[in-house]
């Protein structure tokens, strides 16, 4: 592989944050499913272990999220999450059409990766939704469930704790779906593992 085809796109702090976040989310999904569907006894570890794992992973990704916010605040990484409304719908359509048809006919990507454009528009807005809406909501509801005395007892005739748990579970589900699609898209290059290597050495293969 020609070194000119590789650009340094993921600085060390992003890779560390991403690695911790990925592990944390995987542990949260596994332990969350184990707790919610306890009768099926998924994954072969105890309910108590699932609680400990879920709490530790939850606190870890919460702290990690704060590091993400600080990292974005002090580095140029924040520009990749900037909302640009100009021709937004057209850009999203273009990228969606690429995933739904162009990719099958080996058309070039409409928004090739470059140091200034790490994410294509679809990726960018999904990441913004996940990182700035879903994950904060997940953290807030998670903290509330960790300290249920903080939760309002009743919201109209409904139990506050039940609604919080329902919201926490629903966001967890969306993040699980995000993870499945994220992993699939990451594996769509010439070599399915190349994007995973990028998250270790920081270099992105632009021919991919």
């Amino acid at each position: 592989m020609n070194s000119s085809n590789r650009i340094y796109l993921y600085p060390l702090w992003v890779r560390i944050w991403h690695g911790v976040n990925a592990l944390g989310i995987i542990f949260l999904i596994i332990s969350g499913l184990r707790m919610q569907y306890a009768d099926v006894d998924l994954f072969g570890f105890s309910f108590k272990t699932a609680i400990t794992l879920h709490n530790v992973a939850g606190v870890s990704i919460s702290v990690n999220y704060v590091l993400f916010l600080i990292g974005n605040f002090v580095t140029t990484n924040k520009y990749h999450y900037r909302v640009e409304l100009d021709q937004l719908v057209e850009k999203l359509k273009l990228q969606s059409n690429y995933y739904l048809s162009g990719i099958f006919t080996n058309e070039p990507a409409p928004f090739p990766v470059s140091p200034k454009q790490k994410f294509n528009p679809l990726q960018k807005y999904v990441y913004i939704a996940v990182m700035y809406v879903l994950v904060p909501l997940l953290i807030v509801t998670g903290i509330a469930l960790l300290f249920p005395e903080l939760i309002v007892e009743r919201i109209y005739s409904f139990s506050g704790i039940y609604l919080t748990a329902l919201l926490h579970g629903a966001i967890g589900l969306f993040i699980f779906i995000f993870l499945i699609i994220h992993l699939y898209i990451a594996s769509m290059g010439k070599n399915p593992l190349i994007a995973f290597r990028s998250m270790i050495d920081g270099f992105h293969d632009v021919s991919h």
């Binding site: 707790m35 919610q36 569907y37 306890a38 009768d39 309910f47 249920p148 007892e153 009743r154 005739s157 409904f158 139990s159 704790i161 039940y162 609604l163 748990a165 329902l166 579970g169 629903a170 589900l173 699980f176 779906i177 499945i180 699609i181």
Partner: peptide, 29 residues
């Protein structure tokens, strides 16, 4: 129980939520 003040992890499985989860995961896969 969701109109009550208690919530039990694993016991309060909302049937609608369960169906929605399975459908969403199924369609994604």
């Amino acid at each position: 129980v969701f109109t009550n003040e208690a919530y039990i992890i694993g016991a309060n499985q909302n049937p609608l939520m369960k169906l929605f989860s399975l459908l969403l995961i199924g369609f994604t896969v």
